[in-house]
Design a protein around this nucleic acid. Structure first.
Lengths: 349, 349
DNA sequence: GTTTCATACTGTAACGTTACAGATTGCATT
DNA sequence: AATGCAATCTGTAACGTTACAGTATGAAAC
């Protein structure tokens, strides 16, 4: 009887954590009453509630997550599903910090659920849903007909997507206004007198490829200019490939004199390619790029940057997924960040 | 169909997950027998074990984490404690990917526990230990007398530190051989004929400041050179401050002609400062830096880079903390990564 | 022919929590 | 005096798991 606590496990030799039971004992109340008093249930006397909460605070009571989870099914976990092949520029840490901001002072914990782009992106989603290991999911690299979004909607599982889909189904998301970015970038280049413009876009599979391309194309049309196509080159290409391909393009006659670049990481390679071809930034050619890395600012003075705030994105995604868990409707959980100094694009949904 | 008016029950309406009880029913065995059969306990008949495992696989049985956790106290969670003010260069995502590699095919999940450098670094540690919300902790930004390490050792709580301490207490860690880096950097600069060398070090509070400084100083002494001191400047300074301070130093007569830089992020600012003072990399001055960001490679061709593999660090830290949880002794759980092309420093523990 | 013993299985209790169905009170209403 | 009722509290059961103490069987030992 007495030996049990001591011999059992050495690791738990620390002062055992208070439970509802111990507080019930201390206050002379029932376990149920304590439970209710702590969550401000209606049928508890004012005096009792105060006393219980005081004692709970004094002994440093923290509800046992496993107990709650087992009983209620609520995990208090948000799962961030990440592609471990992604991210040269380090925006992932900003998203994580942003989510941390968003869930601070809530009961949620953040779990990172990794997968490899070369395997099935559905795997981690199915895992979380099937095992019920989280209350909500945050996904990124969203595609127009994203099977993950479909699956999550079908299963009624709360989630938020970084980026939009195009299936006519409403769901929570946060997105950067890439259409506005594309437009702004062209306008900035045109204002510098550039006429032959090329877009180094996101991978065509992702939704925001279309958004950026639309902004880019619309602004070109308005200025009466034609696109110089880079073929199938995208920012997901290896950084060496981008450099070499751009160098080849830049060496041709009639090469672009203005580039729009969809990511900070690719911008390093893009500029390196231009310089390998003997071009000088700000003289023969200009580049406008997303600034996903803060370090880009130091790279070349003449690079034009449009910042994307991934920490904000993380925060919004956290709020969106928590809203979804709380049962809010999708239309309340959709936000679009406008590039600094830009105006929102017209087609916003 | 989805979205608005749905009530609580819909979510749980999905095919209910199989439990030990359901498998017990299906096989006609007791719950205990099924539990044992699934974890290859000794007292189960060969035939029974096979049958149970087959059925479990067929119905896709996955143990309920809350049940296990409540019963055994084992959370199957590893907590990565992160400073959310840290990390301009994005090495955090690499560490996370590395940890993910390390815990792949185990039952562990990764939880990110953030804190702000401006608050008490002990807070997240105490939180995890007191609430028992993880089986082990990974910490970074280790200091020579790190109170977190002391606390964790005192409480017998499994952990691994990114970086070493200097308290004469053994604990699991992974570290980069910064002493070897400091030495290599000086030797590389000396080989280029540089004579007046300066170190842009890690913040002095962190242990690896001392390591890097030792390697730097030893190599200087061997070459018969003196250090050009940058005062209290460190890589934790704001990136603008680094640029300005370096620019001021570089403009002085007798300014350094060789710099050793402790982080990729700071290297951007360091080089920007040098160039602001009119110096040309590879001509009047050389810089050797840690390559914490892959993008650094594209920054300036004449920058000399020594790579630090944070993905490897993450993997090693995961292995170390899992080893600690499994009860291995600290001495088995200490690894040091040698810089590519370098030799390990002599004083290694 | 009883005892001993290993093998293979089972039932119960408990981890900490909350849902649910009561129980007890005091007080106003009939 | 009996009834109804709101306010406040309580006990039991259950979530899924594992530790522990058993039970049943058969075979070997004496």
């Amino acid at each position: 009887m007495h030996g049990q606590g001591e011999n059992d496990d050495v690791r738990r030799s620390e002062a055992i954590r208070p439970t509802l039971k111990s507080i019930a004992f201390m206050t002379g109340l029932g376990v149920t009453t304590v439970s209710r008093a702590l969550k401000d249930a209606p049928e508890i006397g004012e005096e009792t509630r105060r006393r219980v909460q005081l004692v709970a605070r004094q002994v440093g009571y923290r509800p046992n997550r496993a107990g709650v989870r087992l009983r209620t099914g609520k995990t208090n976990v948000i799962s961030l599903v990440l592609d471990t092949e992604d991210d040269v520029t380090g925006f992932v840490s900003d998203i994580i910090y942003g989510i941390s901001d968003g869930i601070a002072d809530t009961s949620y914990h953040l779990v990172v659920t990794p997968y490899s782009r070369r395997k099935d992106p559905m795997d981690p989603i199915r895992y979380v849903v099937e095992t019920g290991s989280a209350d909500g999911i945050i996904i990124s690299r969203t595609t127009p007909n994203d099977p993950r979004v479909l699956y999550l909607l079908e299963h009624g599982f709360p989630f938020a997507a970084h980026g939009r889909t195009n299936m006519g189904l409403a769901h929570p998301f946060h997105d950067f206004d890439n259409e506005a970015f594309g437009r702004m970038a062209v306008e900035a280049l045109a204002a510098r007198g550039r006429r032959r413009m090329a877009l180094l876009p996101p991978p065509p599979a992702l939704t925001y490829h279309r958004h950026m391309r639309k902004g880019f194309a619309d602004a070109l049309a308005e200025a009466g200019l034609q696109e110089y196509s880079l073929g199938d080159l995208s920012i997901d290409e290896s950084i060496d490939a981008v450099r070499d391909r751009i160098a080849a393009v830049a060496a041709r006659s009639g090469a672009p004199d203005g580039y729009v670049c969809a990511s900070g990481g690719a911008a390093f390679a893009l500029v390196a390619g231009l310089e390998a071809a003997g071009l000088v930034l700000g003289r023969e050619v200009d580049v406008v790029t997303k600034q996903s890395s803060k370090l880009l600012r130091w790279f070349r003075a003449d690079l034009r940057l449009v910042g994307e705030d991934f920490r904000l994105a993380g925060r919004q995604l956290a709020l969106a997924v928590m809203g979804a868990i709380a049962g809010k409707s999708a239309s309340e959980l959709q936000t679009i960040a406008v590039p600094a100094g830009g105006k929102p694009s017209s087609s916003r949904s």
